[in-house]
Design a protein around this nucleic acid. Structure first.
Lengths: 215, 215
DNA sequence: GTCTATAAAAAGATAGAC
DNA sequence: GTCTATCTTTTTATAGAC
C-alpha cells in the first residue's frame, strides 16, 4: 500500500517517531501550549520534516488523537472479553472489569492527557472531525459493551430493556466518576478510594437493573 | 475591608471589568490561547492596568475560575430549592430539576467554557489551588444536593443509605451524561435528546434507590 | 493608578541546499 | 525526503510619561 516507494528507508520510521512524540508532547502540554519545535525535537527530526508529513499543527493533532483512540478502544475490548465473557460472580466481575477500565486510563497516560486536550479544544475543533473522534473513541466503548450486557441479561442475571443505555449508565457510575475526580489521572487518588467508588457504583447499577424476583 | 483607600474612584470598577472580560475571553479561547491583550481590550483598559491588578496571567485565571464557581454554585442552589423543596411527583420533579441544572450550563456559557479550560490545564495547576476550585464548585454541588435527597428519603420516597453517594449518582446519570456528550454545551444537542437522556437517567436512579415495597 | 510605546522572547510556517 | 537558517506574527511583560 506504500505508494510509489519514495525513499528506500527512513520514511515510515520518521512518521511514527513524529506521531509518538506528538502524542507525548500534546498530552503533556495541551494543544496550544505544545510547540512544533518541541515535537520535532522529541521525535529527533527537523521541524521541516514534520511539516513534510503533516500539513500543519491541527492536522497532526487530529491524526494523533484518532490513532490513539483506536489503540485504546482495542485495549478496552480485550478487558471486556477478559472479564465479561464467562460470568461467575456478577458483582465481582463487574467491579474487576471497571477497575481494569479505570486502570487503562493510567496505562495510556499520553492518550488520556490528550483526551483532556480534546475536550478543552472542543469548541475549536471542526464538528465533523470531533464527531469522528467521538465515534472512534468513547462511543465505540458503549457500543461494544452493550452486547455483553445484553448476553448477561439473556441469562437472567439482569433486567435490561435498552442495552446501550445500560452500558452508558454502568460507565457513568464507575469509570466516569473516577475519571472526573482524578481529571483522567492527572490528580492521583488512592487505590482504596478508587475501589470504593467503583464498588458502590457497580452496586447502584445492579440495583437499577436487577431482575424482578419471581417468587 | 478596602485597604488604605488608594484611589477615590475607578479601582473596583476596573477590577470587575477585568474579571468579567477575563472570564469571557478565557472561556472562549482557553487558557493558553487567550492573550492578555484581548482581555485588556475586552475590559476597556490598558494591558498595564491588568498587570497592576493581577501579578500575571496564571493568577488572573485562577481568580476568575474561583469567583465563577461560587456564582454558579449559588445559581444551582436556587434550582435545588425550586424543585426539591416540595415534592409532588418525584420522578417529574427530579427530571425538571435535572433539566434546569443542565440548562444552567448554557446559562453560564463563559464559566463552563472555563471549566473545560480548567480540566484541560489540570496537570499544570498547583494541586492546592485545584483542590480549592473543586471544593468551591463541583464538590459543593454534591454536598448541597445530599440533604435534599436525605429529606426525600426520610419521607419514605427513597431508600438511601449514603446520601452523598446518591447525590453523586443522580448527577452522573443526568447532568454529567449530557455535559459529556455536549462537551459542556460546546456541541449542541437537540432539546428532545437531552430530555430523553435525563429521563432515562432519572428512572435508572429511581430504580436504584427505590424503597423496598412492604406488602 | 492608568495610559502609550516598546522590549524580548517564542511560535508557526517557509526558502533553499543537499 | 531531510536538514539548517530565516521570516513573520504574536505574546508576555515592562519602561516611562501623566
Amino acid at each position: 500500500m506504500t505508494q510509489s516507494r519514495p525513499e528506500p528507508y527512513g520514511r515510515a520510521d520518521k512518521r511514527q517517531a513524529i506521531t509518538q512524540a506528538a502524542r507525548r508532547v500534546f498530552g503533556r502540554d495541551g494543544y496550544t501550549r505544545a510547540s512544533m519545535d518541541a515535537i520535532a525535537a522529541a521525535a529527533g527530526v527537523s521541524k521541516r520534516t514534520v511539516y513534510n508529513h503533516f500539513t500543519d499543527k491541527e492536522q497532526l493533532f487530529l491524526t494523533v488523537a484518532l490513532e490513539g483512540a483506536e489503540d485504546v478502544t482495542a485495549a478496552i475490548a480485550q478487558i471486556m472479553d477478559r472479564h465479561l465473557h464467562k460470568i461467575v460472580d456478577l458483582e465481582q466481575d463487574l467491579i474487576d472489569f471497571s477497575l481494569d477500565r479505570v486502570a487503562a486510563v493510567t496505562s495510556f497516560p499520553d492518550h488520556f492527557a490528550l483526551v483532556r486536550a480534546i475536550e478543552a479544544e472542543a469548541a475549536h475543533i471542526p464538528p465533523p472531525i470531533l464527531k469522528s473522534w467521538i465515534a472512534a473513541g468513547p462511543q465505540t466503548g458503549h457500543l461494544r459493551l452493550a452486547p455483553y450486557l445484553r448476553r448477561i441479561a439473556d441469562r437472567g442475571l439482569l433486567d435490561i430493556h435498552d442495552a446501550e443505555s445500560a452500558a452508558a449508565h454502568l460507565t457513568l457510575l464507575t469509570v466516569t466518576d473516577v475519571n472526573q475526580q482524578t481529571f483522567y489521572g492527572a490528580v492521583p487518588l488512592p487505590q482504596e478510594e478508587i475501589t470504593q467508588l467503583v464498588t458502590i457504583g457497580v452496586r447502584a447499577f445492579l440495583r437499577s437493573y436487577a431482575p424482578t424476583v419471581v417468587p
